[in-house]
Amino acid sequence: MLIRPMTDADLPAAASLMRELSLEFILHEGSADAAAFFTAENDEAGLRGFMAAGTVYYAAEIDGALAGFIALRGNSHVYHMFVDKVHHGKGVARALWEHARRQARERGNRGVFTVNASNYAVAVYGRLGFVRTAPTQCKNGIFFNPMQLDEAAHG
């Protein structure tokens, strides 16, 4: 597995992967309007816009194909993390997270990270050391769980 900065060439595959996974694991809990808004905001152009605005994306590549990706906003907030279902449970999410975490620390992050995890992803982030900081919330029809990792407190 190769973890590398995501490029424009990755955007079609990343947008497709995100759409497929979000429909199955996130958007089924909310309204059709919320799903439409989310998918429109997070299409190929949306991802390109997030990158242009400074959100840092890393891609996991296996056998030349995009296996997943992670994005950090503001050097501390996990904004996106999606892993192709064929690679679930194989350490791709952990590898992406560890790479993004190391890069953020090198850029000055002091070891505090946040994420708004989907209900499906709470357990994944929990295994990475994140803990809930508030009950499940809903914004724009999308349910999420605020979580934080404080490396000083975590150990």
Rank of each mutant, 00 (worst) to 15 (best):
Y120A: 13
N145E: 15
T136G: 02
M51E: 13
P135Q: 12
D8Q: 15
V115L: 03
A153D: 10
D63N: 08
R127V: 03
F25V: 04
A134V: 12
V83L: 03
I62M: 08
H99W: 09
A52V: 06
F38C: 03
E98M: 07
V131A: 14
A60Q: 01
H87W: 09
S76V: 00
L17E: 03
A134I: 10
S76K: 06
P5C: 04
R19H: 06
E61S: 04
S118D: 06
G46K: 07
L27I: 02
A13K: 03
L27H: 01
N42D: 02
H77P: 01
A117C: 07
Y120N: 12
L2M: 14
G89D: 14
F144S: 15
R127E: 10
T136C: 12
Q148C: 15
L27Y: 01
F69E: 03
D63G: 04
K139L: 14
H28G: 10
L17G: 01
G129A: 08
Q148Y: 10
K139Q: 11
L11W: 02
E24R: 15
T39R: 11
F82R: 01
Y58Q: 14
R48I: 03
A123C: 11
G126K: 00
R110V: 15
Y58D: 05
A93N: 13
K139S: 15
G129P: 11
H88T: 05
A71D: 08
A32Y: 11
V56I: 14
G141N: 10
Y58T: 08
N42Q: 09
L21K: 01
A9T: 09
E44C: 07
M6I: 04
D33W: 07
A14C: 02
P135K: 07
